[in-house]
Design a protein around this nucleic acid. Structure first.
Lengths: 203, 203
DNA sequence: GTCTATAGAAGGATAGAC
DNA sequence: GTCTATCCTTCTATAGAC
């Protein structure tokens, strides 16, 4: 591969990421991607053969990005509360920079459930409970966290972090009516969300 | 209008609702809608002129459905805790019957923010805080609920109720890896969510 | 590797008969 | 009010020159 290959392929991939995030698979147009990449439409097919393949490349990259950001949660040097605070700060910060990500992933996985399986195969999200139980054996006694309600807690945490961005246009509109604005609402949320969850799970 | 008008228009509307919820505006095909309604494609245009108009009819009906189900929250005969419990039971039950609703609304409002404005105009969601303050003046002292953190609380409640359905295929896959199943997770959630929120907002 | 030109199919929309 | 036939545009994808 020459340098030109990489440059062009990279430009295509970036442009495709933009367009797919904005319009979704069905709404995206190959012409639009080509224009933004500053190249000809047929080059897209030269590098990726079909729209579907190009989409999958983008989807897997973007989805992995989302699920691989849980690293600090596995760190041994943080208390449970610190991990929760850390998570909300980091995760909300990432979403702040990519506000279109949640709707994109939610939408595409909902219309095509098989897509998520490959991504989750290589994630250790299934082992989360085992890790937590091992790392916080003593601490856990001070919280209402059990193997049984663990899915409820984890999905609530994800919900509180992700939903504001997934529902951004609705929330923005309502906040506007009440004299608030979205950006400061999000900034406040990093700490509020952590407090909220910690109170909710404390014994 | 004859009876036939209503029957056909109704069948079209029902079919359109199904298809739009399943595929979204961009993924939906007029031919598909016509087939499900058991009529010819050109009849769609006879009744609704364009795909866009048909979509708007469906979207407004469906979105209103979602925002008008907050009625019990305005009832004077319930305590704050009872309202929260009532909300989660009712709301999760509705979503259980229409699991595709959240992604549909999130997706379409995100790609076209103007769409939500007309719906929210006729909703009294902007006055929620005023109503709450009036109806629960004394009770409120036992909770950490202020005018300032009210948006944080409301969006957390919505998040906890809506997100499991918006992320259904992801959550289902993960639950599977952990030996749980989605349906019982949802059934448990009605009570768990209420407990979770009440603990989180108690002083 | 990149472009132009175009095939081939599909989708939304309309005309006109009944 | 409903159908058939068809127009027109748009979109993905490929052929072939450079």
């Amino acid at each position: 591969m020459t340098e030109n290959d990489n440059q062009t392929e990279g430009k295509i991939f970036e442009a495709a990421t933009e367009v797919f995030l904005e319009k979704g698979m069905d709404g995206a147009r190959m012409q639009d991607i080509a224009d933004r990449a500053g190249i000809n439409k047929s080059l897209l097919h030269y590098y990726y053969r079909t729209k579907e393949r190009l989409f999958i490349a983008v989807f897997e990259k973007v989805a992995n990005q989302m699920f691989k950001k849980f690293a600090p949660v596995y760190s041994e040097n943080l208390t449970l509360e610190e991990k929760i605070r850390f998570f909300f700060r980091e995760h909300i910060d990432i979403l702040k920079k990519n506000p279109g990500l949640p709707v994109f992933i939610l939408n595409e996985t909902s219309r095509n459930p098989e897509r998520i399986k490959k991504i989750l195969e290589f994630s250790n999200i299934g082992k989360l409970w085992a890790i937590l139980e091992k790392q916080h054996k003593d601490e856990l006694e001070r919280y209402n966290i059990t193997r049984e309600n663990f899915p409820q807690i984890m999905t609530s945490i994800a919900a509180i972090s992700v939903f504001p961005f997934a529902a951004k246009s609705i929330i923005s509109t309502i906040l506007g009516k009440m004299g608030h604005d979205f950006d400061s609402y999000i900034e406040e949320r990093k700490e509020y969300a952590a407090d909220f969850v910690i109170r909710a799970i404390k014994k």
